[in-house]
């Protein structure tokens, strides 16, 4: 339903046929199209502005030694810039020198933490690890039952523990501590901690998150974010990163038709890589992140491959 950005660019350059070079004037139209496309893709306004200025500088400084038309040149510059923002390589996963490696899942309500905990466990299991799961979501109805079902579906162990009468942060920290001990005692080399969804402005729950980090000293703190997130992605990512220094992000629900511009916002604002994509509700709908997927969604599918062949 959206016209691909690359098509729009072709169109905006059509009346410039014969002009082989990119000039201040003829790229302004293109930059406007790019700005709109970035916003339609949910890239944050400030982040988009920043990207546009980089693209302008690159476009003006580019020498035209290829077989590409001005439109194609711009598309390639945009592509390169977006790839650069997202980081070209798939991020590595960190393990602790002394097992168990602790992975802390964090994020807003409903972003996909519990589901991703199961996916990550399945992925690690396939890689020869023995993960243990624990849910410290003592707040949401049936959150702990949900992780229990997820664990049994993917066939990994879970530490259930018991809740006290007055559930709260004390329970959360105790459950985490007990699960860590359990993992160490029973030779689970990875402990994945599923936490309750929380808002970045929820002082009490964010403080709980900081205490959890202090208690567990996790190797990975993954910010789990919904790919359909709009402009607010920068606010939540910043809040979690400022408090916890996240080590990466997981972008879920990429099996839909959202453009996933939030990935650029999160990456820019935290400086941390997107490490995985969630691509469905089932445990195996999970893959390491490659920036091309999001870049081609923003630019329009198929263009990149064609361009790369010609460049």
């Amino acid at each position: 339903m959206f016209e691909a950005l690359s098509d729009k660019l072709q169109r905006s350059f059509k009346n410039l046929r014969g002009q082989g070079t990119l000039t201040d004037e003829n790229i302004n139209d293109a930059l406007r199209e790019i700005r709109v496309a970035l916003l339609e893709s949910d890239v944050n306004l400030d982040v988009a502005r920043d990207i546009i200025e980089h693209i302008r500088a690159k476009a003006l400084g580019s020498t035209v030694a290829t077989a590409l038309s001005p439109a194609e040149q711009i598309v390639k510059i945009v592509r390169d810039e977006l790839m650069e923002v997202l980081g070209k390589d798939t991020a590595r996963f960190k393990f602790a020198s002394q097992p168990p490696t602790v992975i802390l899942m964090a994020g807003l309500q409903g972003s996909g933490k519990t589901t991703t905990t199961g996916k990550l466990a399945a992925w690690l299991k396939k890689g020869g690890h023995r993960p243990l799961l624990v849910s410290v979501d003592v707040y949401r109805p049936a959150a702990r039952e949900q992780l229990k079902v997820v664990a049994s579906t993917v066939g990994v162990q879970i530490y259930e523990g018991k809740l006290s009468e007055t559930t709260g942060t004390a329970d959360v920290l105790r459950l985490a501590k007990e699960a860590f001990r359990e993992a160490r005692n029973f030779a689970n080399d990875v402990l994945i901690v599923d936490t309750a969804g929380r808002l970045g402005i929820d002082q009490a729950l964010m403080d709980e998150m900081a205490q959890l980090k202090k208690e567990l000293n996790p190797s990975e703190i993954l910010f789990v974010a919904d790919a359909m997130t709009g402009q607010d992605a920068v606010n939540s990512a910043k809040a979690f990163n400022d408090l916890l220094q996240i080590t990466g992000a997981v972008l879920t629900k990429m099996d839909g038709d959202s453009r996933g511009g939030a990935a650029l916002s999160i990456r820019k604002i935290t400086g941390q890589p997107i490490k995985f994509l969630g691509t469905g509700e089932k445990p195996d709908a999970f893959e390491p992140f490659h920036p091309d997927r999001i870049v081609s969604r923003i630019l329009g599918m198929g263009d990149i491959a064609t361009l790369l062949e010609r460049a």
Binding site: D42, M228, T229, G230, D232, S236, S258, R259
Partner: peptide, 11 residues
């Protein structure tokens, strides 16, 4: 609809 939803909400 989640208030954080971006342009995908229209679709």
């Amino acid at each position: 609809i989640d208030a954080t939803t971006g342009q995908n909400g229209l679709q």
